[in-house]
């Protein structure tokens, strides 16, 4: 019994010691950086990558700025495959356009792997992440009766093939964000790789010619990444720009105050200063009377 209790005490001391060691070690350790990368293809022309950095601090995932990251094409992070370097911003994002120099590597296969490596610093160790992308594109068509057809095509050995079951959004680009063309939030492509949407936003203000920008987008797709395609359509209401620059308003520039304000202000000023000038005249009169 006594022997067992000694063992228990010894075990407890050992455990405590180990825990303390681990705790101290953890304090001294660097934090874990969560690194990921996303592929973007805009209008089937502009392709770029964005690296995201996050870390769990006080129980919350927070973006980590000022982390230098290197982007590589293919699974190999050799210098020859380096696309470029970028530094994360306040949102923990570091974008990088895929340079033309990567073309030879890009055309080799229908699938592509991108690797992103963060540079080690005092707080974080070097971290590596990768993303695999199957080359795909969106095709958008519109008809005169305001129907929108979008097709998702994937690159295969023989050429571009329609893809079934891809979720995408069809919207109109606005200043504060995208506005869905109708009630449906998300469309899924059918066996022909297409979706069909109706434009139901009549009288939506467009540009000077009534043009709106339609946008179809695939977001965060595990296979294809982020794809967008845009098209200009004359379905909006024409915006008539009315210049207020020369109008008489309370917020106008000098010399363009409202007439009522000018009348009021100048009348008051005029009346008061006429009285004052009259009184100065009275001083003159007093003077003349005194000299006589």
């Amino acid at each position: 019994m006594k022997k067992n209790s000694y063992k228990s005490i010894l075990l407890a001391v050992l455990l405590l010691g180990m825990m303390a060691t681990v705790a101290i070690a953890q304090d001294g350790d660097k934090k874990d950086l969560m690194l990921s990368t996303s592929y973007f293809n805009s209008n089937n022309q502009t392709q770029y990558l964005v690296a995201h950095t996050k870390c769990k601090i006080d129980g919350k995932f927070l973006p980590i700025p000022a982390i230098e990251v290197s982007f590589y094409i293919t699974n190999d992070s050799a210098e020859s495959h380096l696309l470029g370097k970028a530094v994360t911003n306040d949102k923990g994002e570091a974008p990088l356009m895929i340079p033309a120099s990567a073309q030879s590597e890009w055309v080799k296969s229908a699938k592509q792997t991108f690797v992103v490596v963060s540079k080690a610093n005092k707080v974080f160790d070097q971290t590596k992440a990768s993303t695999d992308v199957v080359k795909a594109k969106l095709k958008i068509d519109t008809t005169a009766d305001k129907k929108i057809n979008v097709m998702v095509l994937e690159l295969k050995d023989t050429g571009w093939t329609p893809v079934k079951g891809v979720d995408l959004k069809v919207a109109i680009k606005r200043m504060g964000g995208d506005l869905n063309v109708g009630e449906t939030q998300t469309y899924t492509t059918d066996s022909t790789g297409s979706i069909s949407a109706d434009f139901k936003r009549d009288s939506l203000p467009g540009d000077l010619n009534g043009n709106l920008t339609l946008i179809a987008k695939v977001e965060d797709n595990d296979t294809y990444g982020n794809l967008t395609v845009e098209e200009l359509v004359p379905w909006g209401a024409k915006m008539e720009y009315v210049s207020r620059f020369d109008r008489r308003t309370l917020f106008a520039r000098r010399g363009h105050s409202p007439i009522w304000l000018e009348l009021l202000a100048y009348s008051i000023i005029g009346v008061v200063w006429i009285i004052l000038v009259y009184l100065v005249g009275q001083i003159r009169k007093i003077k003349t009377l005194g000299i006589e």
Binding site: I286, L289, G290
Partner: peptide
């Protein structure tokens, strides 16, 4: 120096002060 305390001057001055 021009103030001579004449009734006219006083009248003008009082009126001016009132105004």
């Amino acid at each position: 120096s021009f103030w001579k305390d004449t009734p006219q001057q006083i009248k003008i001055s009082r009126r001016a002060v009132n105004i």
